[in-house]
Design a binder for these strands. Structure first.
Lengths: 201, 201, 201, 201
DNA sequence: AATTAATCGAGACGGTACGTCGGGTCTTATG
DNA sequence: CATAAGACCCGACGTACCGTCTCGATTAATT
């Protein structure tokens, strides 16, 4: 996003150190995970990545850009699920999202999305990108359900997406901070009524 | 939360300037609205409120506390609705929430809730408080619907709350930044299918 | 100085770009003249010379070396004088030195000499070299005066040199900054009493 | 210079810490003495003075200003001499100046003067101030000599000043770097012929 | 009335991080 | 295979803000 420029650079002079980009992103995530936003420092990231600060600023405009990229790169999306039935697919998906949010970096995606929705220019279309990537999983699931005839072809998938993801996100909002170490069982107990509600059997 | 303490102070010495508290909260909101989180500084708040920094720090522990209080005080909750029918009550409520989010300070509530869910100690139970206050409106609505016999007594109100509010929040996440000036008509077009989905006619 | 090495390189590999050396020296002088010591940067010199930084560092050890060479190369010494009489020779010489100091780069010689006297190793014997070159003119003048019998053979030329050059330098120190555009007349008015003092008629 | 402003400040707000100014100047000198110009760091000065960087920058515009002030404050002038005879007064004075230059900070005065003569605005009239202060000693000496009848009343003191100080400065330029630990004897050997030259017995 | 104590506006304080920039080194592709 | 281009590491720059502190000036309640 910030770095690529063009693949076909003639590139005179010393080429950019190959590993650097990745090491910096990784260091950024680790720092963010350990210290949180408040304690997230460019100097610390550079030091941890074994890299000069200028090397970081050569690739990212500022702190926000780096953190955004780092988190977006990491939050590669929820794992696909395909259990054969719509209901259990949804339960799995919701549970996966829940687990994703338990991870500080997973939750950071939400944080950045909310920030992006505030600051007009800075964080750009971060929210849209994340939403699209996440919704794709759900569209795949519903697509298969339509093929199987479980739901009609004009099923309002997007609305389902908003309700299901929204509900999980809302739960996480009030839950996290207090505790972020739910067992699979507890997650299931929270997810099942949700799916039952949006997709009554 | 931070300020009140107790009304029955004997209070020797000069009493606190009456208007100060309010002026500071107001200034905080204005600053936050204009400059966003990044540009939100205590110095600016104090200056705008025409108050010394110590006067601010005498009342609020730190920046987070002030901003939290300011936003919580402003976001006094969604207006009650009572149209006589559950469906239109829900549509009204969702539309109100939507409008609430269009306001930068309304949206800030979400931002803080998300932050609060990250930083363990700092922002405390902000999320819970907000959720409780918002959910009360919904419980009132559903309560009346139960009395009218529109829904069974064991209706999963909390789940409805999470889905409805979650969905509106999700929409706002991907919408805002791009544009935050939806007409009532556009809001209705977004809200109706949501309510139809969670509460099929 | 730093660069030449030897002309008779067998020169395997790519030969050095012919113009580079000169362009760099010139760029160095221009930069130094425009921005002064504080604003004198290797990057700027390289950029102005249309050359990579390594091209510069291949020829000069460091910033000091480059600047030293650039200035020493330019400041090719005070023009010789030979009017036939010691007094007027001295007046001419002192006036020439004065004019030399009016030129920013001429004055830079002094600056570097002083720097050289501070930093032990870095600038090496710059001071001595400059002093020797300048004093040679004077020794020539006094040599002729001795031959003409104007002064005794054991005349303390070195002391005269120090007094005359020192006095002109001192005047320049307090003069420059204020104005560096003395007319020949003003220079004469400053020089004459000096020579009268060190060489009473 | 930078700080004074006015004695009659109404002085609202916390007054500036009294000792700070002095501690900073002292720390600056020590740092400069130990590390030289290249290693002279604002951070280090602040740390050594036990002071925040902002406290330094509140008083001095930038690095140059601080160092200038520090050196000017320290270089409080050459000690007065009064031996009863002009010649030995001059020898003493020249020797004192020599010793002053042996001290890195004493020599720094020269460096700054030369810089000041280059950069028009930055260092202001530093050269003039230094020259005036130093010349006052000499004027006192010559004044007494005139009273004693050793020299005529119209003696060109300023020219003497320029020659004597200039000569000592010139010697130091070519001497320093090599070695800056002359014994009193060596100093005397360098000074005597100088005085003999400008003031023949 | 004099004393006491809390609060006020103002702003300096010690820190810490920011994003920039320069020095000198190192790694490529180029000629 | 020496040279040239420019990315690299390092660390200082000067700025901004945090939350604390120290002033002198109010402003009641208590002596």
């Amino acid at each position: 996003m910030t770095s690529s420029d063009s693949a076909l650079r003639k590139s005179r002079g010393r080429p950019r150190t190959p590993g650097a980009e990745g090491r910096i992103l990784e260091a950024a995530l680790e720092e963010y995970g350990e210290r949180g936003w408040a304690g997230f420092t460019m100097d610390a990231v550079a030091r941890r990545a074994g890299v000069g600060k200028s090397t970081v600023y050569l690739r990212w405009r500022d702190k926000d850009s780096l953190l955004t990229d780092a988190i977006e790169a990491h939050s590669s999306g929820i794992e696909e699920v395909d259990t054969g039935s719509l209901r259990s697919d949804l339960e799995q998906l919701a549970a996966n999202l829940f687990r994703h949010y338990m991870d500080p970096i997973g939750w950071a995606t939400v944080r950045l999305t909310v920030d992006a929705a505030t600051a007009s220019a800075a964080l750009g279309m971060f929210g849209q990108r994340v939403a699209r990537r996440h919704s794709e999983s759900l569209f795949a699931i519903v697509g298969r359900a339509i093929e199987r005839g479980e739901v009609p072809a004009d099923f309002p998938t997007m609305t389902l997406f908003q309700c299901l993801y929204g509900a999980v996100t809302m739960q996480s909002m009030t839950l996290l901070g207090a505790r972020r170490d739910l067992t699979d069982d507890e997650i299931a107990r929270r997810v099942t009524p949700l799916v039952e509600f949006v997709m009554p059997s």
